[in-house]
Design a protein around this nucleic acid. Structure first.
Lengths: 248, 248
DNA sequence: ACGAAACGAGAATATCATTCTCATTATGAG
DNA sequence: CTCATAATGAGAATGATATTCTCGTTTCGT
């Protein structure tokens, strides 16, 4: 977990204006490409310096909110916290919160996107341990499955819990959040395709999308299983996705 | 953050103990199986007559709420209505609402369960038009897929939209609501199994569950597709479920 | 050091679900 | 038919939260 204390040195740029989360690796320098005819360069530089520090501070504050939320979630093992809790925990103010985030949903999206992105990285790393593309994909499916189930005990679960909420209210953003994981599955699926292990006439991108969604959603609903039936396993899901149910 | 709707006295005509909605048409006569040794028969009969009419009225009122909710949902094409809207629309009172239902979630479950149950019937009927078990299953998958997508135009959509919400708060009840559809898929899958069209060593029940969930969930998330990629089709889903992506 | 922008505290709003109060009405026994 | 009682309706009250607003205070850049 990334839980830190008040002065988290971690720097994560968020663009407060457009409410759009910007992934660290995608961070650009600064706008700066204003028409050179308009303003003298020195003024631009001055403004830029001003803005840079302001931005830094803003980033720190955003990070404090994220860390606080993260901490609360892992602490109470549930994703239903109130904005007030996060504000208190981060020792900031409501006003600040709403200056940084467009609303609670954006905080959730940020956490979700971050978690998914990290998971994608971890899974990619783990998959790299396998030689054959099909095995890489299998490992990815199994890991995604494990980290997608509503895990009461797990350390760093994907926050697939609140994805459903967001899916209703902000489907487009959720899709964006899924992007890194989808990218990973597309990579892997394309390698499978390249070595000819993909069934004839199938589009790797589309298979990647279906596989990912199947894995995530089945993990989720198989979690809260009552005792009557033993829950679905990662193995079964892999089998299902890769081979379907029909006999040859 | 206090336990909002935990336990309540079970005096409600609907969902008394287990919060399980009982569809009007499926309703049984009356309990009445009290030991005949206790009370004289005439008294029992009198009480029963009393109760029967009361029950009838209650059922009508419940149905009015359900109809109102249904109307509102199809009208505004969205599933987020307020209880007040339903109450106003049905020309009844809040008090009545909370006498009939344990809360909003129960209304949602009732609608959901009903919709799913009807759909299951329709799909079963449609599937019966096919001869080969595998074709029956294919038809079922395609129809379920179509009726599960967040359809803005459809007449009688499955309200799979609010399933996610409920999945978080009342997973057990959602599972109950899924039961009729799952039963259908299990039937069909077992026929497929019987004729030997199921892959070696697979459990038809588990395949049915995975297939159903895959179809429903993929339908849902493929719906809100942005224009960049053409949405997934029923055909693709059938292909995916039945054959997976791996080459032979 | 000064003025402007940023910030914090927390009161004020707004939206809903859920409960509660009270007056009215329908029911059914006698 | 009449009365006591239980059911019902209208709608105010409550409670939990998210979101916005107000107003001093702090901080920053110059």
């Amino acid at each position: 977990m990334v839980g830190k204390w008040e002065d988290s040195p971690a720097i994560r740029p968020y663009s407060p204006v457009q409410c759009t989360y910007v992934h660290p690796t995608r961070q650009r320098a600064i706008p700066a490409v204003t028409g050179p005819s308009e303003e003298p360069a020195w003024k631009q530089r001055a403004v830029e310096r001003s803005i840079r520090t302001a931005k830094l501070r803003a980033e720190q504050r955003v990070q404090r909110f994220l860390d606080a939320a993260q901490a609360i979630i892992t602490e109470k093992g549930s994703t239903d916290f109130t904005v007030q809790e996060v504000v208190d925990r981060s020792k900031q103010s409501l006003r600040s919160f709403y200056l940084q985030f467009d609303g609670k949903h954006e905080l959730l999206l940020a956490l979700f996107e971050d978690a998914l992105s990290r998971s994608a990285d971890q899974i990619r790393a783990a998959a790299a341990g396998e030689k054959k593309p099909l095995d890489q994909l299998r490992v990815a499916v199994e890991l995604l499955f494990e980290s997608s189930r509503p895990d009461p005990t797990a350390q760093r679960p994907l926050f697939t819990d609140f994805a459903p909420q967001l899916l209703l209210t902000h489907p487009a953003e959720v899709k964006v959040a899924h992007a890194p994981m989808l990218a990973l599955f597309t990579e892997l699926m394309e390698k499978v395709h390249a070595e000819g292990s993909l069934r004839e006439g199938l589009n790797p991108k589309r298979m990647a999308a279906m596989t990912m969604q199947t894995v995530m959603f089945i993990a989720q609903s198989s979690g809260g299983d009552d005792s009557t039936t033993r829950p679905i396993t990662a193995d079964e899901v892999w089998n299902f996705c890769s081979q379907g149910f029909a006999a040859a």
